[in-house]
Structures are given as C-alpha cells and as structure tokens.
C-alpha cells in the first residue's frame, strides 16, 4: 500500500465518560485501515489543537449532551481548518440532528450501522489530496 492511511480524530464534546460507542466506532475504523487518534473528553480549543497538530483528515465528534456544546467545537474547527470534514455520533434528539445536518455535519445517532459509518469516513476523506 503506497498511500498513507487517513487519520481521523475522535473526540467527545461532553464530560460523560461512557466509552463503549466511541470505542466500537474507533475499532471499526481501524479495521477499515484508518489511523484513529483518540483524544477523549475535550473542549473546543483542545479539539482544534489536536486537529491541527495531528494533521487529521476527518474529525468525529461524540455528542453526549447539549448540541450547543458540539456546535462550539464545530465552529472552532471550521475557523482553524475550514476544509476539514466533520461528522458526529451520539445521543441527539431529531431536531438537533437536523440542525447539525443543516450546518453540513453528518450525524450518526445510536443504531447507525458500522458499515454506514465506515463508508462515510471513506467518502469524507476521499477528496483529501495525498
């Protein structure tokens, strides 16, 4: 394989320590050949720092609480690296999902199947030039 693996940052916007969901997604992405950089529970500033320093190709946010918190992180990432794609998962009510989708962020609520998420990761990182 001559192309370098794509790098995905996985971060949690809430202060909720449940790890099962992000871990399962991280493993599925690893098994699909991605490098998954896990940063745990981070603020907007922290996720931006990691997105820059790790030169990632995609950011995955796990939302455990209010969508406003996630939106702050999204806005900060977009300011620092406007071209960087972002997708989310986690417990969000339908109205919050719509709000995020209107902002161009794909949302994968509980019950989303792993192949769907992996396909999304492939698609979102495909147009990053090598």
């Amino acid at each position: 394989m001559t192309t370098a693996p794509k790098r995905i940052l996985m971060a949690k916007t809430g202060l909720d320590g449940h790890w099962r969901g992000p871990t399962i997604v991280a493993r599925a992405l690893r098994d699909a050949g991605f490098e998954v950089i896990m940063v745990g529970m981070v603020t907007a500033d922290e996720v931006v720092r990691a997105a820059i320093d790790e030169d990632v190709d995609l950011v995955g946010l796990n939302i455990g609480g209010h969508v406003d918190v996630a939106e702050r992180a999204i806005a900060a990432i977009r300011e620092a690296r406007p071209e960087l794609p972002i997708f989310c998962g986690g417990v969000v009510p339908p109205w919050a999902k719509k709000r995020l989708e209107e902002k161009g962020v794909e949302v994968y609520p509980p019950g989303s199947q792993l192949p769907e998420i992996v396909d999304a990761a492939r698609r979102l990182t495909r147009w990053q030039a090598d």
């Binding site: 529970m41 500033d45 209010h66």
Partner: peptide, 12 residues
C-alpha cells in the same frame, strides 16, 4: 472543564 460545557450542566 464545566464552564466549557455550560449548556450540559443540569442535563443529567
């Protein structure tokens, strides 16, 4: 850490 997530306060 809580200030950065003020909207989550009182959710759980």
């Amino acid at each position: 850490d809580v200030l950065a997530r003020r909207e989550d306060v009182g959710l759980t």
